[in-house]
Simulated assay, not measured.
Amino acid sequence: MKILKEWIAERINDDIYFFDYGEFSNLEEINEGTKWSLKKANLKNRRITVAIKNLDNNSKITKRSFKGFINKIKTFSKSHQNINRFLGLTKDSEGNYFSVWKYIFEGSLRDYLKDKFSLLQWNDKIQMALDITSGLMFLHSEAIVHGNLDANNIFIKNGRLMIADLSFCDSSKQDMEYDIYRLGILLLELSIGPLNSQGSFSLVQTYGKIEDPVENTPLEYQRVYQECWHEDPDLRPEVNEVYEILSQLKSKSNTNENLDEIFKGSLTPQQIIKKVKLNYGLILTEYDIQPGVQAIFAEDGELKMSLYEGQPMVYTNINGLQPVEVCINFPIAEITYKGDLLESFSKYADDDEKLHESFGHFFARKILLGGKIFIKKFGLANQTQI
């Protein structure tokens, strides 16, 4: 068994990018809002801002744990819309190592909930839950256990939640079922408001026993976070199942809200464009499609709405996710939008990475509004039942 910095000195290879500590300038402490010591810095010659976190250099870890550490930082170095990206390592003049992260520091989820929880609607909470679950689903798809999932390890970037692991804790003693347990705590926190770190587990025990949900909590939402706490880890849902339930809740919430407001005539064309984000591009991930961070077109373009006259649409093997096998869409209306390109979009036209990250991968010329149903185990139905 060796200390972490000895393992790094011996085993780090070209797979992990290494920054010279002299490349950083304007170092500034940014401890507020986290339980870790962090520094904000400018990376010379790259025109980007990064966050630097000191590692637990003198902690003793096994060879197996160090291998897990390397696999984790490699995974966090991959691009995903709900993962705070790890950029590499650096070492100061005293031989201590630091992790270098993309700087997205708009505050932790816990601080955000402390300040703005009363302003959140259920539609907002479900989207935040989806963001967290999407990030965790990516980690689990890479066979990575987070091991320290809580509201202090989740940050906000342009309204989107991103999972970090600033401590890079030793998760070799944890498993994916433990991550699901911690996910349940986060879903509870989005429902009732911010918890303190020390009280999380006792609160789960308390709220896990109550029969009535917190006021206005959707029943499906309450059920899924309570299932995440099941005392038998083998009976907790997998992360993709949690994501599917939340996606259905989000779709239902969006559909009801949008149809009510749009077709009751309570919104102007510009309000409809802004609400449905018709002037935004779409980000395509392995599991989902979400609006981009920035608009592509101006909000004063041409909007057309009409009743949908086609047939329902049936989709099978949705993104490869189980247990849902079939989705049937029942569109009610179709909307098209044409507008002028914004200058902010044009200036990124030659930078694919920034273009996709901010504006999305494609733009939908037509959007269908309506309802949908998901069918589990469709293949088990006989001809009579169909």
Rank of each mutant, 00 (worst) to 15 (best):
Q226K: 12
T206F: 08
F201C: 08
Q205F: 02
Y207W: 06
D232L: 07
L203P: 02
K209A: 14
Q205K: 15
Q226V: 04
Y225E: 02
N216H: 10
Q226D: 05
C228T: 12
E211R: 09
P218C: 05
Q222T: 04
L219M: 15
L195G: 11
G199R: 01
V224I: 15
L195N: 04
Y225F: 09
V224R: 01
H230C: 13
D234Q: 12
C228R: 00
F201E: 09
Y207I: 02
C228Q: 05
V224D: 00
P213M: 02
D212C: 07
P213Q: 00
Q226C: 05
H230K: 11
Q198I: 15
E215H: 11
K209E: 13
H230N: 15
R223S: 04
L219C: 11
V224H: 02
V204H: 06
S200G: 14
D212H: 04
D232K: 14
G208C: 06
Q222P: 00
N196P: 00
I210V: 06
V224K: 01
C228D: 06
D212S: 08
E220G: 11
R223N: 07
Q222A: 01
S202V: 08
L219A: 15
S202F: 06
E227N: 01
N216R: 08
P237S: 03
S200W: 06
Q205P: 05
V214W: 11
E220S: 14
P218V: 03
H230D: 15
P218L: 00
N216T: 10
E220Y: 03
Y207L: 05
P233A: 10
Y225I: 00
G208N: 15
T217L: 10
T217V: 06
P213G: 04
V224Q: 01
L195S: 08
E211G: 00
Y221P: 03
E215V: 05
T217Q: 07
K209C: 04
P237F: 00
D234A: 12
Q222V: 03
E215D: 12
L235S: 09
H230I: 06
D212T: 07
E231R: 11
F201N: 14
L195C: 13
W229I: 04
